[in-house]
Write a protein that binds this DNA or RNA. Structure first.
Lengths: 215, 215
DNA sequence: AAAATAAGTGAGTAATGACTCACTCACCGT
DNA sequence: ACGGTGAGTGAGTCATTACTCACTTATTTT
């Protein structure tokens, strides 16, 4: 039984998790090819040989990271509620604020881009699980609202992508290209949501959203 | 004087250009770290040693590519004309169609992303010359139209980025992540422009754009 | 306490990376 | 014809890389 009064030797699980964390951060920073197994070992505080005890190849380690990082967003559930109430403003504000907020972690975005650019096979899976789902959900919601007569009849998938595009592009600029923030996170989100919904909502229809204009 | 009846030996200039072209294509495909100098030499049809006769280091070759690829877009001039006429629909359609069209070359986008992700020093320059200019121009136009009373008073830079975001995101999905086209290029552009301008144009103001709704 | 097993490592190895060098070849003006 | 010059290369060098192995150290089981 384990009672390591001093954390003398981490369990196998912990080691594995530690390696994955260390590697994820390095891969995100410098890409797969730009990261050496020696660096990973050093970052995790173990010998290089041990890395290969846990993961047969560097590739396998990479795969483990991508597999681990795939979490179907808690965001979706949260949005679901607002979606059921047909609270458009809230739905889109939630989505945008989830990605555009102070202290957001850019690791995942960088990993995603690196894996796509470097042409990793797992990239598809990563994208499929992590984002595809999302577009489809959002497109489904937009379609519903079009059927409600609340939104103009534009192509739902393209429309969903247009919105996500604003958000992702914002993240690209700030997290990848290092462009400084130009407005507060809140104001940025508010502007994007305003612009988008104004373009989408049918003028004739009564506005469904409660006045949630912050500040 | 040179009159090589058969192109027996390319001039220094041509060699250099050939090397840059070969390297650009490889770097775009596999990144800086993922490309070897041997591959570049092979792609250009010369020995590896010659690569280093033309460029002292691999880095220098990379820098030469980025420097060469920086072209202040011919797009800007073309747009200028439409901008002077205050033809909003045409302005934004031109911008979007320039990037979203059949057979567009993804090399530059990939190079840009790779250089930013890999943290190249030249990345900033690349981005600054190639895109910053563009955002600023577009933002200036939007500001003008706001002052004209034609557009709603949103933050011009954020608004410009929102539009570019739709376009860039579209390119990301198709050129980097390999998502198949969902609508024709034309229809995609039309949807984005429609959505964006509807969100931006002041309802009270008379529409400035001539009826250029294709299809 | 001894045996069994798991966790961990130092010191490799073979392959490959960027880069160098002594040299050859093609073409030129004289 | 000839020597000079720049284009071009084959065969390296040396560092680094992913990965292995014989071995030690810690923990658990009996």
């Amino acid at each position: 039984m384990r009672q390591p009064s001093r954390a003398i030797r981490p369990s196998s699980r912990e080691r594995q998790a530690g390696l994955i964390a260390a590697a994820a951060s390095l891969f995100a920073a410098k890409g797969f090819n730009g990261t050496t197994t020696k660096e990973i070992a050093k970052a995790a505080g173990v010998s290089e040989a041990l890395v290969f005890k846990y993961f047969p190849t560097k590739q396998a380690l990479y795969a483990a990271i991508l597999a681990e990082k795939i979490t179907v967003n808690e965001l979706l559930e949260a949005v679901e509620e607002a979606a059921n109430k047909r609270d458009d403003h809230r739905v889109f504000t939630m989505i945008a604020s989830f990605r555009i907020r102070p202290g957001v972690d850019s690791t995942l975005l960088r990993l995603l881009l690196f894996s796509a650019l470097e042409g990793h096979e797992l990239s598809d899976m990563f994208f499929g699980k992590h984002h595809k789902v999302f577009y489809d959900h959002l497109a489904a919601y937009i379609r519903t609202r079009i059927d409600d007569g609340a939104f103009r009849p534009l192509d739902p998938l393209l429309t969903a992508r247009a919105f996500i595009g604003m958000v992702v592009h914002h993240r690209l600029l700030h997290e990848i290209f290092g462009v400084p923030m130009h407005q507060s996170h809140e104001d940025t989100v508010a502007t994007y949501v305003d612009l988008f919904l104004t373009g989408l909502i049918k003028k004739s229809a009564g506005r469904t959203m409660p006045g949630k204009r912050s500040r």
